[in-house]
C-alpha cells in the first residue's frame, strides 16, 4: 500500500507546518545564544562564544535567581492546583447556596486584565504586608493561574464522577485511602496539566512580579526582560534557552513523579521511548 489517502496527508501537512513554526524559532534562538558576531548577510554566525551563558549564570546571583524563580513557580503550581482540585470537587459534588456565583468567581480573573487587578492586589498586599515578599508574589501568581487550573480540574473531576469512589468505599477504603489509591490517580492527567499550566504562567510572569515584588523579589523573567528590550540578542537568547530547558526539565520531573507514585496508567504526556 504505497498510495496515501488525502485524509492522512492533510493532518500530516499541518503537523509538519506546526513543528516548523515551533522548531525554526527555537533553532535560531539556540544559535543566537552561542553567537559572538552574526553580521548580515551571513547565513550562519561568524564567531561563537559562551558570553551569553556566562552572563546568565555569572554575576553574583544568576543561579540563585533561577532557583528562586523555579521555587516560586513550583509553589504557585502546587498551591493553585490544590485549591482548584478542592474547588472543582465542591462544584461537582455538593449543592450549596451561591454555587453558581462561586463557579463564576473562579473564572473572574480571566475577564479582568492583569494590569487592572494588579493595582488593586498591590494596594491590598501593601496593607497586609505581603508586598515585596516571595509569599506575596506566589499568592499574586496563583490568582492569575487559578482560572486555568479550575477550568482543567473541573473537567477531569466531572469526568471522573463518583463511581470508582463508591466501589472503593464498599470495599473498605477509608477516606484517605480512597484519596490516595483511587481519587488522585483518576485526576492525575488533569493535575499534571494544571501544574504545568500554572508553572508556566508563574515562571513567565513579568508585570505582576515587578509590581508585587517591588524589585525586592527577583525572578528569571525580570532579569531577562532588559536584554529582550535592550537589544543584546546573544544574552537574551541564552536566557531564552535556559528558560526553555528548565521548563522542560520541570515538566518531565512532574510526569516522572506522578508515574512513580502509580498515578498514571494511561498514555504519557511526553513519549520518551
Amino acid at each position: 500500500m504505497s498510495r496515501r489517502k488525502p485524509a492522512r496527508v492533510l493532518p500530516r501537512a499541518f503537523l509538519a507546518l506546526h513543528l516548523l513554526l515551533v522548531a525554526v524559532p527555537i533553532l535560531v534562538m539556540v544559535m543566537w545564544s552561542f553567537t559572538a558576531s552574526w553580521p548580515w548577510p551571513s547565513l550562519i554566525p561568524e564567531a561563537f562564544s559562551l558570553k551569553g551563558y556566562a552572563e546568565v549564570f555569572g554575576g553574583a546571583n544568576g543561579a540563585a535567581v533561577l532557583a528562586q524563580s523555579v521555587g516560586i513557580a513550583l509553589a504557585t503550581a502546587v498551591l493553585t492546583t490544590t485549591v482548584a482540585a478542592l474547588g472543582s470537587r465542591a462544584l461537582a459534588r455538593y449543592h450549596f447556596r451561591g454555587k453558581e456565583l462561586f463557579r463564576f468567581a473562579t473564572v473572574l480573573p480571566f475577564l479582568i486584565p492583569t494590569t487592572v487587578f494588579a493595582m488593586g492586589v498591590q494596594v491590598v498586599f501593601l496593607k497586609m504586608g505581603f508586598a515585596r515578599t516571595v509569599g506575596g508574589v506566589i499568592l499574586a501568581h496563583s490568582i492569575v493561574a487559578l482560572p486555568y487550573a479550575v477550568t482543567i480540574m473541573a473537567d477531569v473531576t466531572a469526568a471522573a464522577g463518583g463511581r470508582l469512589e463508591e466501589a472503593a468505599r464498599s470495599l473498605g477504603a477509608r477516606p484517605l485511602q480512597n484519596l490516595v489509591h483511587v481519587i488522585l490517580p483518576q485526576l492525575a492527567p488533569g493535575i499534571l496539566s494544571s501544574i504545568s499550566m500554572s508553572y508556566i504562567l508563574s515562571f513567565s510572569q513579568y508585570f505582576l512580579t515587578l509590581l508585587i515584588g517591588g524589585g525586592m523579589v527577583k525572578t528569571f523573567a525580570l532579569e531577562m526582560f532588559p536584554y529582550l528590550t535592550g537589544g543584546d540578542r546573544t544574552i537574551a537568547s541564552a536566557y531564552g534557552v535556559v528558560f526553555l530547558v528548565v521548563t522542560f526539565a520541570v515538566f518531565l520531573l512532574v510526569e516522572w513523579a506522578l508515574k512513580k507514585f502509580g498515578f498514571r496508567a494511561g498514555q504519557d504526556l511526553f513519549n520518551l521511548q
Binding site: 468505599r169 464498599s170 496508567a265
Partner: peptide
C-alpha cells in the same frame, strides 16, 4: 456506620474496576 466499615462489598452492573491497577 460509614460504608467503608460496613463490610458489604458491591458488584456493580458497570463493573468499576480500578484502571490504574
Amino acid at each position: 456506620v460509614p460504608t467503608h466499615r460496613r463490610q458489604t462489598a458491591i458488584v456493580f452492573q458497570d463493573i468499576r474496576l480500578f484502571p490504574n491497577m
